[in-house]
Design a protein around this nucleic acid. Structure first.
Lengths: 262, 262
DNA sequence: AATTGTTTTTCCGCCCAACGGAAATCGGGT
DNA sequence: ACCCGATTTCCGTTGGGCGGAAAAACAATT
């Protein structure tokens, strides 16, 4: 008899046992680097048999959850996007925060970012970048480690103790020579963030960029998100930006307390 | 013997036969009006048995595609949102267009909208609305009939003939006394839109709002989206806005021709 | 606190739809 | 026209999905 299919890694993602899991695996096959895939690619990436993939993908495309481009590749469909737009921590949060972010952008014309925490990483929910602002490495819907970014420091500083410990006990990733990788140093930085009500990340992700971030609190008083402004490092003194960012963050926090809206 | 489950409407959405379809039905249970649902509500709305729903929802929540709020309700999860962010006609389009929309907003401080066509309806992909702009009835991720809105007229005017016929052969919805509901009149409006390269919808959705819209063309020359500006009706002469909106639309069209970006 | 009604969760055996091997068909490149 | 990989159709087998029933957790009411 032939050997059965083996999961790639014993500790890795579990084998797709259930039909539901297989559907999710198809979705998960799409990434920022590869947002368009052929049938065979999907089958390979999701670890499913060709025939199975064919049937699943067919049904998903039928209902608009996937779309087919003219070169026969598959992409994420608008139907999925429409439903995802209902995610409270996604578009709903963005919708509420946008006017404030808009103001921030108009005053500074720099990069404005809004992010939330997902497990031990940062997920960017909104990013406004004019053509003239510093290029940053982030994308809406993208993830980033928490330890280096401004928004990450804020989110981590107010995260449950267990999350903080988990991050601190894992080797901290390095991006530049300025990146803080010493757990002890990071720990005291987090304490400072809690004390001051804002965070500054100076050249820790990109050499010449400084980020100023402030916390957004939900109705229950827990941290819900974080706003930041990313400016050219050598340039402006970020000190003047601190009150601006904090004001925006407070504005959003206030908006979240309004019932019905949130 | 007890009667089996009957589909709500013989011609309506088919009964959930496949496992995949059931997963999609769970997702589809969430709407703008009801973005948070209890288990029983999901079961009811998706037409699934309690036990089945429980198992599905459990697995979906496990992997972050659904989230559970503290009041035990379910919501769309960030995981789904992250994947949906890869939709070319969703966030990818928005990302490309944002700088141009940003400019439009900064110059006018009015409502800026970006929309695409999905079958016979308009889906709003982006909406920038300052606190001081006219309130509009649209939401990002929301749908609207094509016949009344500015973006809808543009998208319909450049849509395949069969789509136009389908829309024109269905009773046109009315929102205000100004709404065009005569197919013949609409037909000549569409011709004008093609001829002029822009559309104006005056008070057809909201009494006192005028919308100026222009088409965005994809790399293949087909229409890909539509941009619009919505201003207070009695106020500014929209004539001056036409070149502005058209310029933005052309800018986005140009951006879509750049390979790699799109 | 005790009672009642509702929602959520666990358990389990039947059975059908999902599965994937194999082969036919399509398509795009040379 | 030819070839090779990608896609699609076909079909017999079987394992995971299914839902009834009952327990457990929870909420509301007296």
């Amino acid at each position: 008899m032939t050997d059965r299919w083996q999961p790639p890694q014993p500790g890795g993602s579990a084998a797709p046992r259930t039909a539901t899991g297989k559907v999710l695996d198809v979705f998960r096959a799409f990434t920022q680097e590869r947002p368009e895939l052929t049938l065979t690619e999907i089958a390979h990436r999701s670890g499913l048999a060709m025939t199975t993939t064919h049937r699943l993908v067919g049904e998903l495309a039928e209902s608009g959850f996937l779309e087919r481009s003219h070169d026969r590749r598959y992409r994420i469909g608008l139907q999925l996007w429409e439903i995802a737009a209902l995610a409270p921590r996604g578009l709903a949060l963005r919708e509420l925060a946008l006017p404030f972010l808009e103001d921030l952008y108009e005053v500074t014309h720099e990069n404005v970012q809004l992010a939330v925490r997902e497990t031990t990483e940062v997920v960017f929910v909104e990013r406004i970048a004019g053509r003239r602002a510093v290029p940053v490495r982030t994308r809406v819907g993208g993830r980033f480690p928490m330890s280096a970014t401004g928004v990450g420091l804020v989110l981590l500083a107010h995260a449950p103790m267990e999350v903080q410990e988990q991050v601190l006990s894992t080797p901290l990733p390095r991006f530049t020579t300025e990146t803080v990788t010493d757990p002890t140093e990071l720990r005291s930085m987090l304490a400072a963030v809690r004390r001051n009500g804002f965070a500054i990340s100076d050249g820790q992700v990109t050499e010449d960029a400084v980020s100023v971030a402030a916390p957004v609190f939900g109705p229950d008083g827990d941290i819900a998100a974080s706003v930041s402004l990313v400016v050219q490092g050598a340039g402006t003194r970020p000190a003047s930006l601190i009150p601006t960012v904090r004001a925006a963050a407070r504005g959003i926090s206030r908006g979240m307390r309004t019932p019905g809206t949130w």
